[in-house]
Nucleic acid binder design. Structure first.
Lengths: 339, 339
DNA sequence: AAAGCCACCTAAACCGGTTTAGTGACCACC
DNA sequence: GGTGGTCACTAAACCGGTTTAGGTGGCTTT
């Protein structure tokens, strides 16, 4: 209620100039140790904290970074990625006194405008870019705006852009290999949108793994990561004259919906059909049968992305970060191929 | 790359003082229409946007509001609430030029510090308070800090605090009534943490509905909204000498885990056991059998909360917002009580 | 004793907006 | 023809920090 003290109040109370207070706060050389301590003591006593708005103006930095999520609310709803990812970001950002500014926009078009606005108004010092499309115009826009950015996700194409992400490939490959080891030969894939980088990269990984196992590619169905489309893709695959004996889904949500479609039709899992997911969501361990899936350390991923962006903002050299490779978690939804 | 133009550049180019530019921008009276238009034209031509940092300092506002989420990452992971809720917030905030500042902290203790810091540094003009505990100290802290706040969730106790939320009660009651109508008499409840307001309020609603149906309360198991505890609570209930014929869960995640436990044990759903959830997550419609659950309009909820906070920040009278009441969605997981 | 040099601190400019007090021109009125 | 009142605008203070260019006093140096 009482107005917060300003640097002037502290200076007056300590009998020094406000410059001195600033020096003491940011412990810069040029102050006698005794003076510095006296100033800090007074500041503590008055309960003074520097006003971030004033600081932001004078140093021309906002000490905030932005995350824009462009998804229809429906797709957003059950996404297991963001909460953990954001927790990872935060653990690094808050440590450095940075805040995370979140924007949710309904369409890609709005997203471009969001970035532009964030940059032009000087709200953020850098941004994270997620859900990259294969022909995404955002990197170009951000370069034009001169806004430091870190791309979240597998780096596809432009390698000079700093992307941070676990490579999905080995995870999908591990799932395929696991199934091949169980004797499966007709292994289908239900992908996310192949117009998006992480949809495409998982799809590619599946193709490659099949090729490397010396198998034909098997049926493929494109979906959009939602339960709805996961279910309908599964129906299409099961309706094939020669249905697959295993399906590799691009995420857990679609896999769980597919699992229900199968059991609802009386198709035994894993007796007649094996199923794998991707994400290792909490529920995956608790469906019947338990879902074999790929687990990635999203928290660490967030941390790495934040560190990278802060380095970029500070003009430091971003240390190349090593992330845990994805790990296959085998549960009950996969079993030997039917004979 | 080239430094953004400032208000001074615009003033010089238009041949007026910077005050005039400011007046034109915020279209305040006292400028000839012709002058105002000339200034705006010049501004547009130079591509000038007012710097929000400077604006924030001079008007002593940050044009940002904060949302602090204090949850262990595990609980956070699969929460269907936040993504939609945030989308709702955003739709209102961005309209008014406000930004959403997100903080994720691992513990409740950190959360208090987060709020304090946000307020003291002047980063935000107001905050949302979620996951209220029954003995929560945050309202007191925020009052002390003089920070406008809107509590998200059912208002339990302190009615003078502006809370925005759908009342869970009718939703849970509808589920119980639906089951009673199907002939069930032993209806159990698996709750969230009763130390939290929304855990407690759903539990209370269940008790009340049972009482009003003239039934004894039936077995109760406290859990924490997670799939893990939902599953173990279900096991405890099914192990009872006289197991319930229906279970009302406080959220979908626990209900789906419970559903799997039941089917895994060979307990037919809904033949021998009926199950209801709460949230109407995307997957609820796609499990086998489909989950009967309670749907709330979380997007609208977010919108209402944002409108309320902005009103509070502006010192306007917050219009009382009407939210859609929760709606029971009947699917296959509920059926007639076994005879 | 004048000059030189630190070490320590102050005064003032600056960041880029908003806001208030004030000024000059113009017109109306008595 | 002086007074009063608008209108349209400018100049300058202000928000609360950071930063730079001095300034002061004491101690060495020659």
């Amino acid at each position: 209620m009482t107005p917060r003290p300003t640097i002037n109040d502290v200076a007056r109370a300590a009998g020094v100039s406000k410059g001195a207070v600033s020096f003491a706060l940011n412990n810069r050389p040029g102050l006698a140790t005794e003076t510095r301590e006296r100033i800090l003591a007074v500041a503590r006593e008055l309960g003074w904290t520097p006003n971030s708005r004033a600081r932001a103006l004078s140093v021309s930095r906002s000490f905030a970074v932005g995350l824009v999520m462009a998804r229809p609310p429906e797709t957003l709803r059950a996404d297991p990625f963001f909460p953990s990812f954001i927790a990872g970001l935060e653990s690094v950002l808050s440590e450095s006194g940075y805040a995370l500014l979140l924007q949710v926009v309904p369409e890609h078009d709005h997203e471009l405008r969001s970035y532009r606005r964030l940059a032009e108004e000087g709200r953020v010092d850098g941004v994270f870019v997620t859900d990259l499309h294969v022909d995404d115009t955002r990197p170009a826009l951000l370069a034009e705006l001169g806004l430091p950015a870190v791309i979240i996700g597998p780096a596809l194409g432009e390698p000079f852009w700093p992307a941070v992400g676990v490579d999905d490939g080995p995870g999908v490959a591990a799932a395929v290999e696991h199934l091949v080891g169980l004797g499966h030969t007709r292994i289908a894939h239900v992908s996310g949108p192949t117009a998006m980088v992480h949809g495409q990269s998982r799809r590619d990984a599946w193709s490659r793994a099949m090729r490397e196992a010396g198998l034909p590619e098997g049926p493929f169905a494109e979906a959009d990561f939602s339960a709805e489309e996961g279910a309908s893709a599964t129906r299409r695959l099961l309706d094939l004259p020669e249905p697959p004996t295993a399906i590799v889904y691009a995420n857990d949500l679609m896999a769980m919906a597919g699992l229900s479609v199968a059991t609802g039709r009386g198709v035994d899992v894993p007796g007649r059909l094996s199923i794998t997911g991707f994400d290792d969501t909490e529920l995956a361990a608790h469906v019947q049968p338990g879902l074999t899936t790929v687990s990635t350390n999203v928290l660490d991923w967030g941390r790495a992305a934040a560190e990278r962006l802060l380095a970029l903002v500070d003009g430091r050299d971003p240390a190349p970060t090593e992330l845990d490779p994805p790990r296959l978690v085998v549960r009950g939804s996969t079993g030997p191929a039917p004979s």
